[in-house]
Amino acid sequence: MTEDDAATKIAKSGGGAAKSLMVVAIVTAIGFAFSWFLGSQSVELNGYSIVFLCGVIAFAVNWLAYIPSALAQTDKFYDTMGAVTYLSVTAFACLMSGPLDLRAMVVAAMVAIWALRLGSFLFMRIRREGGTDSRFEKIKVNPARFLVAWTLQAVWVIFTAAAALVAITASERIEIGIFFWAGAAIWVLGFAWEVIADRQKKEFKEDPSSKGDFINVGLWRWSRHPNYFGEITLWTGILVITLPLLSGTAWLAVISPLFVTLLLTKVSGINLQNKQAEERWGDDPAYQKYRKNTPALIPMPPKG
């Protein structure tokens, strides 16, 4: 997945053990500080906001999974544990936040549905590809650099789920209004768009007649990266649902779709996919025409 591509890219540049451990310390400090301020409007447990404790859990889940993975020098569980982290922090937030209103329950369900689909999708990909990932070839044999990747995954979860965690753990419940319904509609659109795009790409790759070709059918005629558009859209929907609850430092929740957008458009995602596509089909006039006439992200009706 592209968010994890960014994590491994940073981990690969980690250098020696001391430098890698410094990166781990800095990233962990950022994650804890972000969770602390994000939880300013959250229900508390023993003096700590539930949002902050969710941040602690995100790191704990990934560091615990790192131990056997590092010992075995395997990346088999890395992607799947990302989904497990989302489910863990969401479940903890629901259990510890007292009676949930409709907004909190719907947002929790949205995150759980997305994470379960993500987890099953990645699990099947691991099985299909034999349980190895070229992104980790040099990282998994270096314990310190491998730890960087697992730590970054925890921060990815905290930042991406920020708006959802605020909605679930809010100490003050607000009546459902236009933001809820608008956000829910945006989430449904984004989730459906992502699921359909992923399904179309899977079917295209499994079709022997399209082996070696670039995909330009279905939603992929409207956008070169419709799955990324769906991903950004669904997290935007959750933020819209959460907007009425935001005040003070809880406004940090707006980082959720912004962070996803940054990852998918600037850090890895589109940049990585474009580079790979140019290497494979750069000399193909049909691909160049497709690239010229089809937006990179935001869908537009196909030309011609």
Rank of each mutant, 00 (worst) to 15 (best):
S69D: 05
C94S: 09
M81Y: 13
S49G: 13
A58N: 01
C54D: 10
T74A: 09
F32Q: 05
N46Y: 08
F37H: 09
D75E: 14
V51K: 00
V56Q: 09
A58P: 01
N62G: 10
A33D: 02
W63N: 10
M81T: 14
V61W: 13
D75R: 05
A70N: 07
L45G: 08
A60L: 07
L38K: 04
C54Q: 07
V51D: 00
W36F: 15
S69I: 04
A58C: 02
K76T: 12
V89T: 14
G31R: 05
T85F: 05
Q73N: 04
F37Y: 12
M96S: 14
A70H: 01
S40K: 14
I57W: 00
G47F: 01
A29S: 12
E44C: 06
L87Q: 04
G82M: 02
L71N: 15
Q41V: 10
A72V: 11
T74R: 07
V84Q: 04
T85H: 10
G82E: 02
G31H: 04
W63G: 10
V61A: 08
E44V: 14
L64I: 15
G47T: 01
G55R: 09
V43P: 08
T85V: 09
V89A: 05
A29L: 13
V84C: 11
A33R: 02
T74W: 02
Y48H: 13
A33I: 04
G39K: 06
G55M: 10
F34W: 12
F77E: 00
F92Y: 13
Y66C: 11
W36L: 10
Y48R: 13
S35V: 01
F92M: 11
Q41A: 02
W63M: 11
F34Q: 00
P68C: 12
I67H: 09
Y86L: 05
I30K: 08
S42I: 03
I50G: 08
L38S: 04
G82F: 01
N46G: 10
K76I: 12
V56N: 09
T90I: 14
G31A: 03
V61K: 01
A72T: 13
A91M: 02
L71W: 15
L95M: 10
C54T: 06
I57Y: 00
W36N: 06
A65I: 15
G31C: 04
S49Q: 03
L95A: 12
V61Q: 03
I67S: 11
T74M: 02
Y78L: 05
L38Q: 04
I57P: 00
A33H: 00
Y86P: 07
V51W: 00
A33N: 03
S88Q: 09
Y66I: 06
S35C: 06
A65Q: 12
A91Y: 09
C94M: 14
A83R: 03
S49L: 09
Y66S: 11
I30E: 02
Y78C: 04
I57M: 07
I67D: 14
F37I: 06
I67M: 15
F92L: 12
I30Q: 06
S40H: 07
A93C: 04
Y48A: 15
S40W: 09
A33M: 03
A65D: 14
Q41W: 03
V61I: 15
F52W: 02
P68W: 13
V84L: 13
T80P: 01
I57H: 01
Q73G: 01
C94A: 11
S69C: 07
V89N: 06
F52S: 04
Y86T: 10
V43I: 12
V43E: 08
L87S: 02
